[in-house]
Design a binder for these strands. Structure first.
Length: 275
RNA sequence: GCCGAGGUAGCUCAGCCUGGUAGAGCACUUGACUGAAAAUCAAGGUGUCCCCAGUUCAAAUCUGGGCCUCGGCA
């Protein structure tokens, strides 16, 4: 019989960690985090990372695995997650995949076969400049010539995704659409979706943001900036970090920054629902 | 009290001069997502146009009166 995998998903601040920790205690489980922000060391408060106490009760994997100036793509995340699941199973424990990064969860649960083309930042910068020059529509037309199928699925205005598709086509000489498939993993999966009325979710998220501020989120961001981490880094684009970075750079007031964090967190809640 | 500015979507505001029955950004709702994903992108609804009267075929728009807000002067 196939090995079990429990998956816990849901929007931010709904209580995924609390439930997962409790279940781990009861069923001898370990948590594999599916969170694209908790992977960074030194970013604790703003990412609502499980506390040391929670981590002592239930072992967590894939938290604190890279520095803020490093990056981790879905494909890498996926193989790390599969390895962690195998490791947990081998030791006779129950794996819980827990997190709010829909892309990560799908990559693992559905078994996306992501084209193995690492990002080429030089090429991306060139293509971005080209998009500026000839326009998003023309860049999309370039993709359509190489891979009509992929072009049909990507809105021409979504330059970032058009560029990734072009990157794969150009690097491999083959259409990206021919290199994307799905191969479900060999687990018996039980997926638990946590939810709550929208309004309540917004209130919980807002309250948590206030708590983060009280716990010193601003100092955390200040420290990261002092360590030389640029605001343009993917790690610094997360909710809270971006806006507080703007404040520290003198572009907006602290009040405005907190207001923006809340608004954008609401949007994030909605985005998570789509997964 | 006087002078000035203003009252249009939940918020900030455009439209008013040159009447033809309302629009943008944000919020909000819905959706996409295969190596940046807490990223990036798309679609959508929203209105006693402060009130009353007048002019007019037709008023957010012009005229008169009233109410309210903000700033300056007393």
């Amino acid at each position: 019989m196939a090995s079990p995998l429990i998956v816990i998903v849901g929007p931010t601040a709904v209580g995924k960690t609390a439930l997962a920790v409790k279940l781990c205690q009861r069923y001898r489980g370990e948590i594999i985090s599916a969170d694209s922000r908790q992977i960074y060391r030194g970013m604790d408060i703003g990412t609502a990372k499980p506390t040391p106490a929670e981590q002592a009760v239930a072992r967590h994997h894939l938290i604190d695995i890279i520095e803020p100036d490093q990056t981790l793509g879905v494909a890498e995340y996926q193989s790390l997650a599969y390895a962690a699941i195998e490791d947990v199973l081998r030791r006779g424990r129950l794996p819980f995949l827990v997190g709010g990064s829909g892309q990560y969860v799908h990559a693992v649960v559905k078994g996306w076969k992501v084209p193995r083309v690492p990002p080429d930042y030089t090429l991306r910068t060139e293509l971005e400049a080209e998009a500026e020059r000839i326009g998003a529509y023309a860049l999309h037309a370039r993709l359509a010539a190489l891979d009509p199928q992929a072009a049909a699925r990507i809105d021409y205005r979504n330059v970032r995704r058009v560029i990734r598709a072009l990157e794969v086509c150009l690097k491999t000489g083959k259409p990206i659409s021919a290199q994307q498939s799905v191969q479900p993993p060999p687990y018996r999966i039980l997926q638990i979706g946590l939810t709550m009325p929208r309004e309540q979710l917004y209130m919980r998220a807002d309250a948590r943001i206030d708590r983060m501020m009280a716990e010193g989120l601003l100092d955390e961001v200040r420290r990261l900036v002092a360590q030389g981490y640029d605001l343009g880094l993917p790690a610094m684009s997360g909710l809270g970090y971006r806006q507080l970075g703007e404040y520290l750079a003198g572009h907006i007031s602290l009040e405005e920054a907190v207001r923006l964090i809340k608004k954008q967190t609401h949007r994030f809640v909605r985005q998570q629902y789509n997964w």
